[in-house]
Design a protein around this nucleic acid. Structure first.
Lengths: 202, 202
DNA sequence: GTCTATAGGCAGATAGAC
DNA sequence: GTCTATCTGCCTATAGAC
C-alpha cells in the first residue's frame, strides 16, 4: 500500500486487471514462441490467442523483444529456476525430480530448447538471458560438485568444473531428443545414470 | 556417359559449371542459415553472398526448403557424418578426434545447433532430417556400446541404449555451451571424461 | 540461365480517434 | 486501454523477356 506526498490515497486504476492482462499475454506468447520459435512466431498470433488486437498487445509490451524477455522470466518462476535447493535433498534426487516434473510441461521444454539455440543467431533478444543463465547454472553445479569432492564423494579423476558443464549439456541434449521421440527417451534415467557414475555412494 | 535413342551424342550443356554454381549456393546458404537460422535467413541474403539475383537462385533450388535440405546433406559429407568408422581406432579416440575437428569449423556447429532446435517447431522442412539422424546415431552408438559390453568393457550398470542417447545428448549440449562461451568450454574434454567413465580400460 | 518486374502476403511498429 | 487505419519494409515465389 502506497500513498502520495500529500498523504491522500493516489488514484489506483485497474492495476489488478492490467496485471492479469499482462499475464495472459505472456502465457499466450509462451505457447506461440514454443510452437514457432521467436522469429517464426508473430505478435498477431499471440494477440489472436489472447483475444485482442495486435496493437493493443503492444500497449503492454512495447516491442516483440520485450515480450520475449517477459516470457523467459516467467519461465523461471514456473520451473523454480534460480531458486535455492533444499539442502536435505541429494543432488541426484533433486535433478531427477525436476526432470520428471519437466515431462509434465512439454511446452516449457520446447520453449527452452527452441529459444536457446535460436538465441545464438545474430542479434537475438534472448542472447544475454541464455548466456547468463548458463554461467549461473555452471557456477551453481560447480559449487555442489566441489562440496561433494571435499566430502570425498566425487569419483577420482572427475573435474567438478567439467562435470558441471557436462551435466547441463546432458540435460539440454536429452531434452532435445525427448522432444523428437518422447516414447524412446528416458530423461530422468539418463541424468540419474550420469550422476550415479560421477557421485560415489555415501 | 549416356546417348540418345538415335545413338548420336546428346548435347551436354555446361554441367560442370552448373554443379559448381549449385555448390557455391549451398555454401553461401550454409553461412546464412548458420548466422540467422532457417526462418531468419533469406534467399536474398544467400543470393547476395553468391553474387546473383534471388530468382536465379530459385532456378537451382525450387524452394527455400529444398535449399535447406541441400545444405544439411552437404554438411554430412563435410563432417564425414554417416560414414563407417575405422575399426582400428577406439570409440574414445574417434569421438575426441571428431570433436577437435569440429572446433576448427565453428560455422558447421552453429548451423547444426540452430537448425536442429528450430526443426522441432511447426512444419519445419528439416524435421525429418533430424529425427532420422538421431535414430541413426543412436543405433550406431548402441551397436558400439553393445560390442563393448560383450567384451566386458562396459562399466557394470551402464545400459547401452541409454548410454548411446546420453553420449549424443552430451555432445549436442556441450556444443551449445561452447558456441556461447568457447574459451570456457572444453568439448573434447567433456566427451573424453564421459567415455572414460562408461568404458573400462582394456 | 539470368535477369527485371511484380504478384501477393505478412511482419512489426506508429498515429490518432474514441 | 482499445481500437482501426496505415506506414514501411521484407519475404517467397511466379511470369515472362532476353
Amino acid at each position: 500500500m502506497t500513498t502520495n506526498e500529500t498523504g491522500t490515497r493516489a488514484p489506483r486504476g485497474p492495476y489488478a486487471k492490467s496485471k492479469q492482462r499482462r499475464e495472459s499475454i505472456v502465457m499466450a506468447a509462451h505457447e506461440v514462441f514454443a510452437a514457432h520459435g521467436y522469429r517464426g512466431g508473430s505478435l498477431q498470433g499471440v494477440a489472436d490467442k489472447v483475444g485482442m488486437s495486435q496493437t493493443s498487445l503492444l500497449h503492454y509490451f512495447p516491442s516483440k523483444g520485450d515480450l520475449l524477455l517477459a516470457v523467459l522470466n516467467w519461465r523461471d518462476t514456473v520451473t523454480g529456476d534460480g531458486g535455492a535447493r533444499d539442502p536435505r535433498e541429494s543432488l541426484v534426487d533433486a535433478v531427477v525430480r525436476q526432470a520428471r516434473f519437466n515431462e509434465t510441461v512439454p511446452g516449457v521444454i520446447e520453449l527452452y530448447t527452441v529459444l536457446c539455440a535460436e538465441s545464438v543467431t545474430d542479434n537475438h533478444p534472448g542472447r544475454d538471458y541464455f548466456t547468463q543463465r548458463y554461467e549461473g547454472l555452471r557456477r551453481s553445479y560447480l559449487q555442489q560438485f566441489s562440496a561433494l569432492a571435499d566430502a570425498g564423494r566425487l569419483r577420482p579423476g572427475v573435474d567438478p568444473e567439467r562435470a558441471a558443464a557436462s551435466l547441463i549439456a546432458l540435460w539440454d541434449g536429452i531434452q532435445t531428443q525427448w522432444l523428437m521421440a518422447p516414447e524412446r527417451i528416458d530423461m530422468a534415467g539418463a541424468l540419474r545414470d550420469y550422476l550415479d557414475m560421477v557421485i560415489l555412494p555415501e
